[in-house]
Design a binder for these strands. Structure first.
Lengths: 114, 114
DNA sequence: ACGCGATATATATTCAAAAACATAACGGAT
DNA sequence: ATCCGTTATGTTTTTGAATATATATCGCGT
């Protein structure tokens, strides 16, 4: 409902497959919380949705970004893999670099907005 | 349904407001065809949708990007304004520059995809 | 005067994505 | 043996977006 523009530059790879702003944030939340359900809660989405997104990511890349286990002390959990950390780092780096490369142009551009 | 990834880097400004890949293409089509309905046909979308997108763009910027007129020889039409050309050029330039800035990283990144 | 093709807008319908709900399996802790 | 929280997955319901449909207006050409 906010008429204001989100000033964040958004970089997507492909047709919302593989990874994008949302999936990157989710991956980050899984890494921090150690579980898909905690990440989902934190991001205000259903567990099912979060699980599906993680599943999509896992299947889009050659090697899984997240590994999960059920049962156990805390009921189970999920860990980000080496590959996952790598992908997240690369994505964030690209996001930053791309945004920085057009920061000046973007500042001028936003002046044209109402 | 295509499992393959669209390799095009996509740059959006804000939460699909103001402008993005789709609106830029539409703006371009309107500029080329001289009418919203022709642009809609060309892009395979309903006239209503195209009109709404154009309307959103017009209201998001300080000055309209497209000016339309009804009636007349061909029934009417739509013209891209100076401002519209400017916005489109700036957007395309940013798109290109941002993509170029991370082209090498993107090449490496896509190697990780299945 | 009338028709044509386009803009402009309202309303209704369709359809797919998201959410909600449900359930099974797992395995350590109590 | 039971309980808990989580993963994993199926089914149903809801919601929202896109489309379809309809209507009014405009103004030039015939």
């Amino acid at each position: 409902m906010d008429k204001r523009i989100n000033p964040k530059l958004r970089i997507l790879l492909g047709a919302e497959i593989a990874i994008g702003p949302g999936k990157a944030d989710l991956l980050d939340a899984v890494a921090r919380t150690g579980s898909i359900s905690a990440a989902a809660r934190e991001m205000g989405m259903s567990y099912r949705r979060a699980w599906l997104l993680v599943d999509t990511m896992n299947r889009c890349f050659k090697r899984p970004l997240v590994e999960a286990s059920k049962g156990g002390s805390g009921g189970g959990g999920a860990r980000i893999t080496e590959q996952g950390l790598d992908v997240l780092a690369r994505y964030r780096a690209m996001e930053l670099k791309a945004a920085a490369s057009v920061a000046a142009e973007m500042r001028e551009f936003t002046q044209l907005l109402a």
